[in-house]
Design a binder for these strands. Structure first.
Lengths: 225, 225, 225, 225
DNA sequence: TATGAATGAGCATTCATTCAT
DNA sequence: TATGAATGAATGCTCATTCAT
């Protein structure tokens, strides 16, 4: 386990810094091993703090996990904001958006994977009876509002970019929310499937590929039946 | 542990039936709770057998899990074959394919989610050192050949359907494999994201939606820059 | 697992024969693996009967084990009797006795090892509270009388042979029982230690060696202090 | 499991003390019940620690067991060294040696019994295939070198003491190693058989007895055939 | 504040024994 | 009689969490 920070470097940090250190360590480990398989010991080792110390900063593994996700969201949302404020055409903006989200999903932010996939862990985390199925009503009711809000910021960024394109005539007329949903799914699915794909693509190649398909579809528009 | 089942409620099964019964129960629980969080006790309860009995039929939790996946694959691959033999245009076939895969992913076959997402569990299952990163070489080397073969049948079905469309001129000229990759990602991502979506769509609506976007993209082709 | 008896060969046997088959199989497995590590499944496999069938012939693993030991004793005691009736000098008889016991201990009858060494198993078998220490009073009170009787036949055989030698003047004057105890210990210890010895000796060499030492001791009787 | 210990009764130990405490508890339980029948719970109860705590100090039951044996060896070997450095005649030294080894075997060090007798457990412990027979080559290859080394120190102590006696003329001319083997067996067998003996002897009486026989044998040297 | 130590609750797996045919 | 199937009770080991300093 590589030691990212030496004890000396760390000394100077105060409480809030420590929190962040731990959060980063946790993110790293959670990303690599998922919620269930990650042990608090591993996070502690990665953060170079004692396990007990983690519990000083976070009430539980569950809480730590939530904060990791929230933290990841925050960073990503911030990058998102920067992107949105750029003066670009909808197409250009969409292309960059795809690239950004691909990075968010695949690289450092792969925690999101857990958020989207470890239903089981989520239930445990959300304090639901494990037998109770994961339905919208139950999940939505329990996911801290903060979560949903952050999540919405994302999809809204996509949605509004697409809407801009529709308005400017760059994109065809359609339900921008649906399109956003589709793009989200595409990115998600592409990132998750990575491992079992035989060929891998660079982020650039990937984003070009996805962008191209999302824009043009597969249909031959010049084809006359 | 309180007795969670009664002998009376359960029909008398033969060995092979029992195996299947357990397999189904396992699939259900694994699907809901993922690999790590699923306990053998839960599967046993669901199957209305004692834990020890499961071990008569399956060597280990790991083995049971593998068999669940294989079993799911088998069923799906069979449906796939039926579809492929139908005499349909590439577009029609693609539409049905999307519908089928959506069902495979979202409904009964949601075990596949684990296969695609629980990297950590997979590592454990594949007997890898948890520290060792999940790379293609390591994973591909260890995933039983049977698995990869089944998996390939799927992507090949998609690929060849797309290729048919390209050949017939229905689809534009492109790399069929890449397109297949994209569709796979789309379906995957759509299914996994389901839970956190605010709106849900029926399988029909979903497949129409995905089909439409995959076919046409979002671009306004009549738009002149 | 080698099949000692084919089902066909066995068909002809009646209940009593089956009992013996099982007994032999059990002896073989118990000898190799000890009481605790031997599973009823293993014995059943060795005997080519179903586990349930074993329970038709023996009330429990414990009972089966007892019978194995008793059976072993019986065979050995019989050989002993034959030896005792031979017309030999005490020295000669003693030499043969050593050889016989060495065989009994080391070869087929290594079950005795368990009897002598697996105190823990004995306790369980004897139905003692595991916390209760193994003292003479408790053990002796519980070991079925049959056992002690058989055991005594052995030591008495040794004792009386030695006594004969004392009476004939071949052996020096001593407490024959003590000497018997000593010889028993020597044989036991020699057999048990076999595994960790670097050199191994044939039964013949071993018995000569033991006999020689037991007879002459190590002292230099011609040495004048 | 009811709490079997109270924090109050237990003196505060440092880490190293705790390790030793657990080691002693384990030795006690292993000695009484053998490897297989000893449960980690029992050791924990004896040590007045929770099971989980044992695992802080020892990686596994197997490891704990090994350390118990090693520890026992160490103590015994140390006593041995002290004895060897004393200025005594070979006979006197031998007598004390017998006494010491008798103590080692029968009293506190009865763990050694397991080492010598629980072949089956040894196999499991050594990670051998249970079907694979216990042969010299396999066992010797796997027993940690440390073990064999300690073991050899013992037999060498005996051997050299005997050799001294041979050289000084106290003992008759013979193969010192063989004689050492014999004495080892005698002591071992005597200790193991203890339980089923009707008469028990004090360590003093026992050592006198064994010493006497080992020295003089049973033969009447004045007897003329 | 920081941490080494301790633990309860849990989990996968095994095995002697019983049951139903 | 013989047996395939079923199971309760263990057992070794792990891990999130708390405690004492």
């Amino acid at each position: 386990m590589a030691k990212k920070y030496s004890r000396d470097e760390r000394k100077k940090h105060r409480a809030e810094d420590n929190r962040l250190f731990i959060l980063e360590a946790a993110e790293k480990v959670f990303s690599q091993r998922g919620y269930s398989l990650t042990t608090v010991d591993e996070i502690a080792a990665e953060a170079q703090f004692s396990k007990a110390t983690l519990y000083r900063y976070f009430k539980s593994k569950r809480d730590l996990f939530f904060d990791v996700i929230l933290n990841s969201f925050d960073e990503a949302v911030q990058e998102l904001e920067e992107l949105r404020s750029k003066d670009l055409s909808a197409e250009e903006k969409l292309k960059e958006l795809i690239q950004l989200l691909l990075q968010v999903f695949s690289k450092k932010k792969s925690v999101s994977r857990i958020f989207y996939t470890e239903k089981d862990a989520m239930k445990k985390i959300l304090g639901m009876d494990p037998k109770e199925p994961l339905s919208h009503s139950t999940v939505h009711a329990r996911i801290p509002k903060k979560f949903m809000d952050k999540g919405k910021e994302f999809s809204q960024a996509i949605t509004s970019t697409i809407q801009e394109g529709i308005d400017s005539g760059e994109f065809r007329d359609m339900d921008a929310e649906e399109a956003s949903e589709i793009l989200g799914a595409l990115l998600r699915g592409f990132s998750f499937g990575e491992i079992f794909r035989e060929r891998t693509f660079s982020i650039e190649k990937s984003s070009t590929l996805l962008y191209d398909f999302f824009l043009n579809g597969i249909k031959n528009h010049r084809h006359i039946k």
